[in-house]
Design a protein around this nucleic acid. Structure first.
Length: 437
RNA sequence: CGGGGUGUAGCGAAGCCUGGUAUCGCACUUGGUUUGGGACCAAGGGAUCGUAGGUUCGAAUCCUACCACCCCGACCA
């Protein structure tokens, strides 16, 4: 992609409304554009990052055997009346009437719909367990949307649902998701802490929030540093090992502000291991048994020929929120560095350009073509501007690797730089090797 | 939802108090000079001043209503 052709309306001035760095950066680099309060359009740069996050989330869901599907954004109110949540959900639910006067709503979540699908499709215990998920837009009519994509009304979310014959089996599904979540955040290069959580309006009795560490996070966190020593690689993908994994993680103290008690913290965590920081909730998982299968009459036939309520869990990851959350975690001192896995480009080529001498631009184009052949997604900064302006721009765009063609490059060697590290003078072959994933 | 505030060009602001038909910086266009950390010179384009109504010879400015957006608080991926 040529920078001159990329729709990336960079501004030097901060938009007055943006208060936190992810919101500021996303507006300044034109990743998003506000459409109305808490509702955003995703411009190419932001969209690309979000799609990469989505893909990682998808891959990790698939790995644990969850099946992808897609449910609509608009739902009928009927099933929500059946579950009793049509009234409970309150003002947060956006209610719509169609031309026939039927009550519809823009889905804030999908427990009802998936249960309705499940009950009419699955009749036997033999089909269980099942895990289904979709990645879809949701709408919650927040009282006060703010902080850009961190707290908006329309958001992109992965939500998964598990179906099991009994609680024991359901908890195994829960543990699988727990595992998938930790792997997902790891691939996104985020430090995530699973924390025992309240179940809130979704209901149920087992729940964890996944909070990633970021200084500007919304909630304060008190945790035992040792939780980071738990290594996912030590666990196999089998029920016993996953159960142990969850217990290992749960054995360390980690709570949010509302549950924090100083004496408990001091008692459970060595002073030297105490970390007090801030975090952003990016995932939430629940086991809630028959909370929805009961009102919605979702039964399967058991081995004994009886009918039993299906035991369910639900599992959310805020995909669009993660875009902002990654920025909160990675953007520092006016410099953004995307994790390689989600960066909008693999590398940016920055030639020093002048009218009388297009040598750098010619070389840069060759490098660009070479990299393209190797499936490296490169951005070529073909704009005729001062290098200093270019550098400032790329500090914001945040591509983690730069190939710079200017005063320091030699005949066939170029400056290669990983953001926040020293530049090296390397040949194209060496650069290619560095960029191999 | 309660409290507060703001709407002027793509972005950031001035002008409003004290009415006389819109100013500045960035960005953009053209030409020239520059070219390693947010350049310079010259010329240029772009605004129904949130919307509607009212007062007035005359409204961005005063009045009324509406709309939108933002901030502070209680809730959420």
């Amino acid at each position: 992609m040529l920078l001159s052709k990329l729709l990336i309306p960079i501004t030097k001035d901060l938009p007055a409304d943006a208060k936190i760095k992810s919101h500021q950066l996303m507006l300044r680099t034109g990743m998003i554009r506000q459409s109305s309060a808490g509702i955003y359009s995703w411009l190419p740069l932001g969209f690309k990052v979000m799609k990469k996050i989505e893909q990682i989330v998808r891959e990790e869901q698939n790995k644990i055997g969850a099946q992808e599907m897609l449910m609509p954004t608009i739902q009928s109110a009927d099933i929500w009346k059946e579950s009793g949540r049509y009234d409970d959900y309150g003002e947060e639910m956006l209610r719509i009437k169609d031309r026939q006067g039927r009550e519809m709503l823009y889905g804030p979540t999908n427990e009802e719909l998936i249960t309705e699908i499940f009950r009419s499709s699955v009749k036997s215990y033999k089909s269980l367990p099942q895990m289904l998920y979709h990645i879809q837009w949701k709408f919650r009519d927040e009282v006060r949307p703010r902080f850009g994509v961190m707290r908006c009304r329309e958001f992109f979310m992965k939500d998964a649902y598990s179906f099991d014959t009994d609680e024991n089996s359901a908890k195994k599904s829960y543990n699988k998701m727990f595992f998938a979540y930790l792997n997902t955040f790891k691939r996104l290069d985020l430090q995530a802490i699973p924390m025992a959580a309240d179940t809130g309006p979704i209901g149920g009795d087992l729940s964890h929030e996944f909070v990633i560490l970021a200084e500007t996070g919304e909630s304060k966190i008190y945790a035992d540093k040792k939780i980071f020593e738990v290594n996912l690689k030590n666990f196999k993908f089998d029920d016993k090992s996953l159960e142990k994994m969850r217990k290992d993680f749960s054995s360390f103290y980690a709570v949010t502000d509302d549950k924090y008690k100083k004496d408990e913290f001091d008692k459970n965590v060595n002073k030297s291991n105490q970390i007090i920081t801030k975090g952003i909730e990016v995932g939430h998982i629940f086991y809630f048994g028959d909370k929805y299968s009961k009102p919605l009459n979702c039964f399967v036939d058991t081995k004994e020929g009886k009918k039993d309520l299906v035991k369910m869990g639900s599992y959310g990851i805020g995909v669009s929120r993660l875009v902002g959350a990654i920025i909160e975690a990675k953007y520092n001192n006016e410099i953004m560095k995307w994790p390689k896995a989600v960066s909008p480009f693999d590398v940016v080529i920055i030639p020093s350009i002048s009218k009388n001498n297009n040598e750098n631009m010619v070389k840069a184009s060759k490098i660009y073509d070479e990299l393209k052949k190797q499936n490296v997604d490169a951005l070529l900064d073909d704009v005729d501007e001062n290098m200093s302006i270019k550098f400032k721009k790329h500090d914001l765009i945040g591509v983690p690797f730069q190939i710079i063609l200017g005063s320091k490059s030699k005949e066939n060697k170029f400056e290669f730089k990983e953001v926040n590290q020293e530049a090296k003078i390397l040949s194209l072959e060496e650069i290619k090797r560095k960029l191999k994933k």
